[in-house]
Amino acid sequence: MQTSSRSPPFAKPHPAGRWLYPRPEGLFCEAGGFYIDPSKPVDKAVITHGHADHARRGHGAVLATPETIAVMKIRYGENCAGAFQPIHYGETVSLNGLSIGFVPAGHILGSAQIIVEHAGTRVVISGDYKRAADPTCEPFELVPCDVFVTEATFALPVFRHEPADKEACRLIKAIRQQPDRTHLLGVYGLGKCQRMIALLRRSGFDQTIHLHGALVQLTEFYQHSGFDMGSLRTIETGGTDRRQDYAGELVMCPPSAIADRWSRRFPDPATAFSSGWMRIRGRARQRGVELPLIVSDHADWPELITTIEETGAEEVWVTHGREDALVHQLGLMGISARALALVGFDDEGD
């Protein structure tokens, strides 16, 4: 197993490392013969959630929640894997004498932590997770374990997200204060988009929200799954909309569309972006964001620390993100931690 040079010298690797370890394809469970969120096509894949850096096409068999499977089919097509086996939260499957269970991770709709029990040891692989409330997914469920495999996207003490409702209200206020401008909100297409819509609706924003075409299919999937998104409208490419139709309106689009030619159709657009990265001024300015909304679907620093403590894990493995700071902090807390060298995960969360 590859470990970081920063792990405390006294810690002996946990024995679970003998049957669960990184390979070039991803985190491999030798005892069960499957990979978790592999970055390359494999025979058997267990998938935590539908984000593109976790759920890829071309696997032989996929074990995931029904929502994750649906997302994969929407994104990659019905036949993007040889076979799908849906598993609901709270269910377990047995495989070669070990058990695999799924519980909510609170990250996006259908996101799961994966519990693997083998040889008397329980390992929880968190995937991406957050503890803050989210009207569009089941809340994170804490599972005590021996080894906790955690994400570390925002693993620096400077990252403390704001209450999401408060940020949604800031956006609503900005829209009302500048009725001549279009507010252009950059969001990731899966999860953040639908969470922002739900947050805005909860805070009383009942105007029609205009969606960039790239956001439509996944939002419809949320609607079919029973989430009320209020009045939505798709911006057609080559449509006959006039610029002034968008004054005072809210348009949501993928982050890349903000600075794209696509955005020229709006009058004097004011750009907002909702992401944990917006905590850092330079990041917001770099993108020319006027209204940075500090809303994230990933755990911030205090959530990471609390969660790890609460699982009672003897050992923590850190996957994608800023491992240095987290491994160092856990060392200070007397928790043995090491960075797993896994490739293929995307810094931006989607």
Partner: peptide, 24 residues
């Protein structure tokens, strides 16, 4: 109040002392 190593990593990432301190 803040561990020096965590401060260093944060300052490197943020790039501005006042901002780093305000966050930490």
């Amino acid at each position: 109040t803040v561990d020096p190593e965590l401060y260093r990593l944060s300052r490197d990432y943020v790039g501005d002392t006042a901002e780093t301190v305000s966050l930490l």
